[in-house]
Design a protein around this nucleic acid. Sequence first.
DNA 1: AAAATACTTGAGCAATCGCTCAAGAATGTA
DNA 2: TACATTCTTGAGCGATTGCTCAAGTATTTT
Lengths: 197, 197
Amino acid sequence: MARTASYDRNAALETAMNLFWTKGYHATSLKDLEARLQMKPGSIYAAFKSKEALFRATLDRYAARMSAELEALIAASPTPLEALQTHLRSLAVIAPCDRPSTACMLVKSLLEAPQEDELRDFITAHLDRVETLIAAALNDAQRKGTLPETCDTGRLARRVQTYIFGLKVQAQRETDPDRMRDLCHDLADEIGRAAAA
Amino acid sequence: MARTASYDRNAALETAMNLFWTKGYHATSLKDLEARLQMKPGSIYAAFKSKEALFRATLDRYAARMSAELEALIAASPTPLEALQTHLRSLAVIAPCDRPSTACMLVKSLLEAPQEDELRDFITAHLDRVETLIAAALNDAQRKGTLPETCDTGRLARRVQTYIFGLKVQAQRETDPDRMRDLCHDLADEIGRAAAA
DNA sequence: AAAATACTTGAGCAATCGCTCAAGAATGTA
DNA sequence: TACATTCTTGAGCGATTGCTCAAGTATTTT
């Protein structure tokens, strides 16, 4: 073989993800990436091909982590519905220390991506996958009897996702923490009622 | 006096707004604006001072129109609550012919604006104003007896706005129109129940 | 008609954009 | 040690960014 790479691909992706997540795609320049990744342009392009390719890789990473966390929460909860309610309530934290932004990176990127663009399809595909994941959990709940058979799980899943979108946008306004908590609890409770109907 | 301006300031602002609305702030270049406004850089800067100043002017325009439309809808509806429900249901139209994007320009701009930036405060101020407008309508409903006194109007207003945010993001995914309609109706119905409680 | 006053024009500025590539450095194998 | 292979470096490419300003043009006032 030959010389081994001196950078940590995983760490570089994580750093790039945090940068894109906070600043957005357009506002993140290669100079920014060079500085934060501590890599020269040549290395970045050798490793990730292009700015957009790197961006897509970070979107993959973000979506994978988001899905994994949600699946873990579902697995650790008594029922999928309670997991989703817990998740909604967790969005009340205005300034989370574990993530660079309260906004959803996928939503942020979706709104930034041009219409009828391949990148947009790439992002919506990820969002579709999350929706499917939620619906699958609800289907599972029906099979186990914790959710009424009459419930349209796909429809409820879209509703939950819409709440997540809305709450994460609200979190960007950084208003009163109490109000944010009330709002999250209202929507979490609402999901409980929607599932019962 | 002297030479009169050959451009229509109102029309120019409208065109610029539509451009920023669809493409976003960063992705809209001055070349784009020059082409669509049919104005040379010098004229643009003489008229609007800077790209960001022009952007803010278009945000003002957008917010003013949004508020006016909402107020008109409230005035034309039997009760404010029904107006809000009608509005939520109207978001079901995937490709509206009267607007360049289904997304909310304020939300789009909020997510694009850097954190702890003056521009962000500018945008959140507009969103706060809309929230206040909704709350005021609900207060009015309480005075007129069409909304229970027990209802926390500020809290409900934030809830409605969260639904609007979520629905407008969902509309960006351009999925099935039937599903979108179901979703909008679900949330509109829910607001009715939330107000009754 | 002349002067004053605005608005329009567009070449082009400095800075930055995403990106390339030849040269050098470090590791593996022989 | 010599060679092959891979990674790192960074100067700098052409294009584009937001923007300026001196010159030109149109309109009103005197």
